[in-house]
């Protein structure tokens, strides 16, 4: 059968079928847009209502400014400003871990990509293997270890384990091995740069994109980390906001009837707590969506 005959034969019916296929595809896309968006949009409306209005009014009608202010005051008045302290803790843990992660991962990824040493391959395999196991798998073992040396409850007991970030090392490794020509470094050495200078003056200035990428993933992951701080930090003073949310939940009579008391949390306030807890990550997300899409696929090599 010739090409043209094949084409003309196929063209008549598919025109109708393609139209049907397109509308099915459109409906699928729309259903999932609603699925992903409705909870978030609803959350924005919920925080502007009183707890009565939340139940009786339309879910997608705006409440009032005064109710929002009341929710705000209840949230930040909870246990004498515990929420502010938890946000501060989260910033300390995620920020501290971010700094150490960068200090540790960038040189390590550089060394794995561009220098030779005997333990290079074992270290690389270890990085890949640990990178692919879920972060929570090591939490209890790390707890048992730190517990035996009496380090539980200190900020370092979450910051240091968070700073061990093989995925960051891997991203850096891929970046340095694919986008920096070895000749460039060799040239710098000929010109008299020491090994340290080669790294700080040549490699590092070229590494800005990957530094940003590692920083993003490290920050988001650590800010959202629940299991590690939940286990390491027994006292409410040390909670990051993610763990603090459980305290808010426990103080919400709607979910926990035994908690009805003076310092209780109403549903809209709990909703506000949820928004506040993710605000830093959400802001980072909104500002970095473009480079993220590129970065997330950089984790694997091209086909």
């Amino acid at each position: 059968m010739t090409m043209t005959a094949l084409l003309s034969e196929r063209r008549r019916r598919p025109a109708l079928r393609a139209w049907g296929g397109r509308s099915v595809a459109g409906i699928v896309l729309l259903v999932f847009v609603l699925f992903f968006l409705i909870p978030m949009v609803w959350l924005l409306f919920a925080v502007t209502k009183s707890s009565r209005a939340l139940i009786v009014t339309d879910p997608f009608s705006p409440g009032s400014w005064s109710d929002f202010a009341a929710n705000w005051n209840q949230l930040f008045g909870f246990q004498d400003g515990a929420v502010t302290a938890w946000m501060g803790n989260s910033a300390l843990y995620a920020g501290g871990a971010l700094l150490i992660t960068l200090l540790v991962s960038i040189p390590a990824g550089y060394a794995l990509a561009l220098t030779e040493f005997r333990l290079r391959n074992p270290l690389l395999v270890m990085t890949l293997v640990v990178m692919l196991i879920p972060g929570t798998a090591l939490v209890l073992p790390v707890f048992l270890e730190l517990n035996s040396v009496g380090l539980i409850g200190t900020p370092l007991s979450v910051i240091l384990p968070m700073s061990f970030f093989p995925f960051g090392v891997y991203l850096t490794y891929i970046y340095f091995s694919t986008s920096i020509p070895r000749d460039l470094l060799a040239a710098a050495r000929i010109d008299g740069c020491t090994e340290l200078q080669v790294f700080t003056r040549i490699a590092l200035p070229l590494a800005t994109p990957v530094v940003a990428l590692v920083a993003f993933f490290s920050f988001v992951q650590n800010w959202n980390n629940f299991f590690l701080p939940f286990i390491m930090l027994p006292s409410s003073d040390g909670y990051p906001i993610q763990v603090g949310l459980t305290s808010l939940l426990a103080a919400t009579p709607a979910f926990n009837p035994s908690s009805a008391g003076s310092d209780s949390i109403q549903l809209p306030t709990l909703a506000l707590g949820t928004i506040v807890s993710i605000l830093p990550v959400l802001i980072v997300f909104l500002f970095s969506q473009r480079f993220l899409v590129a970065g997330m696929t950089a984790g694997g090599t091209k086909e």
């Binding site: 200090l103 540790v104 991962s105 040189p107 390590a108 550089y110 060394a111 794995l112 220098t115 030779e116 040493f117 005997r118 333990l119 290079r120 270290l123 270890m126 640990v130 090591l138 209890l140 073992p141 790390v142 048992l144 270890e145 035996s148 240091l160 384990p161 700073s163 061990f164 093989p166 090392v169 090994e195 340290l196 790294f199």
Partner: peptide, 25 residues
């Protein structure tokens, strides 16, 4: 080799929060 210097901190963390806790478990 200079590589060891650059990976030293990472190796330290890997030891402290990857390998040692696994062995301890």
């Amino acid at each position: 080799p200079i590589g060891y210097v650059f990976v030293s901190l990472y190796a330290l963390l890997a030891l402290a929060f990857g390998i040692v806790p696994s062995l301890y478990a």
